[in-house]
Computed example of a mutant assay.
Amino acid sequence: LIKHASNSFLAAKISFINAVADICERVGADVEKVAQGMGYDPRIVPAFLEAGVGFGGFCFPKDLQAFIQIAGKFNYDFALLKEVEKINKDRPRRLVEKIEEALWVLKDKTIGILGLAFKPDTDDMRFAPSIEVINLLQKEKAKVKVYDPVAMDRAKMILKNVEYGKNPYQVADASNALVIVTEWNEFRDLDLAKIKGLLANPIIVDGRNIFDPVKMKKLGFVYKAMGR
C-alpha cells in the first residue's frame, strides 16, 4: 500500500492546485503566487504544486486507480481519490476551452502543440495529456501540428492525422495558436519575437504556466494560462 498511497497523495496535490487554479481564474488571482505562498510552509513544500494540464505517465494514474479499487474491495468508497482522478481527466478539456476562447471557433484552425511526452526529459507518452488535448481538437475539426524534443517517434505510433514539425518555429509557422503542453526548458528559451512573427494570430495558450503573463502582454501576445 505504501507506493499506492504515496503516488496517490502526490496526484492529489496536483489535482488540488489545479482546482485552486480554477478558483483563481474566477476571483482574479494568480495560482503561481498562491502556490508559492503555500510552498513557504514547511509542512506543505512547493513540490507538485504546479498548476497545468494535469498529470500523466504510468505510475500516478495506475496507482491512483489501484488504490481506489483496493479500497472498494474492502467496502470503502475512496471518494477523495475519485475526485482527484476526475479533476485530472478534466484538465485537457479546460485547456482546449482556453484555445477556443481565444479563437472563437476551432474548425479549420491550425493549432500548434509544443510538448507531447507526459513530462520533460522523457519520451514516455503513456497517459500523456497531449493525447487527449489533440483528440479534443480533432473532434472540433481543427488541424494539429506538433513538436516534442524527444517523443516524436513514440508519438507517431499513437497520434493520427497530425503534422510533425522539426522544431517549435516550424510548428508556429502559420498556426492560429501555439499551445504549451509539456514544460520542456527548450520552450522556455524560445525567441518569442520570432514566434509572434510566424504565428497567423499572436496567441499562446500555456498549459504549464512557463511564461510571465506581464511580459507576454508587453510582447503583444494574447496569452492564456492556467489559473492566471
Rank of each mutant, 00 (worst) to 15 (best):
H4F: 07
A5T: 14
S6W: 04
N7T: 09
N7D: 06
F9Q: 10
L10M: 12
A11Y: 10
I14M: 08
I14Y: 02
A19E: 15
V20E: 00
V20W: 00
R26D: 00
R26T: 01
G28P: 04
D30P: 02
E32V: 13
Q36K: 14
Y40I: 14
I44P: 11
F48P: 01
E50Y: 15
A51R: 06
G56Y: 13
F58D: 12
F60E: 00
D63I: 10
L64W: 04
L64R: 04
Q65E: 15
Q65T: 14
I70Q: 04
E83V: 12
V84M: 06
K86Y: 03
D90N: 15
R91I: 01
R94W: 13
V96G: 02
E97A: 06
K98L: 12
L103F: 10
W104S: 13
W104N: 14
K107Y: 00
K109C: 04
T110K: 14
I111L: 06
I113S: 01
G115M: 07
F118I: 06
F118C: 07
D121F: 11
T122Y: 10
T122M: 11
T122F: 11
R126I: 11
P129C: 12
S130H: 02
S130L: 07
I131Y: 11
L136Y: 11
E140P: 02
K143Y: 09
V144H: 04
K145L: 13
D148E: 08
D153I: 09
K156E: 14
Y164G: 01
P168S: 08
P168V: 09
Q170S: 12
D173Q: 14
S175I: 02
N176K: 05
V179C: 09
V179S: 07
T182R: 10
W184Y: 09
A193N: 14
K196N: 09
I204M: 05
D206F: 07
D206T: 06
P213A: 13
K218I: 04
L219V: 08
V222M: 08
Y223V: 12
M226I: 15
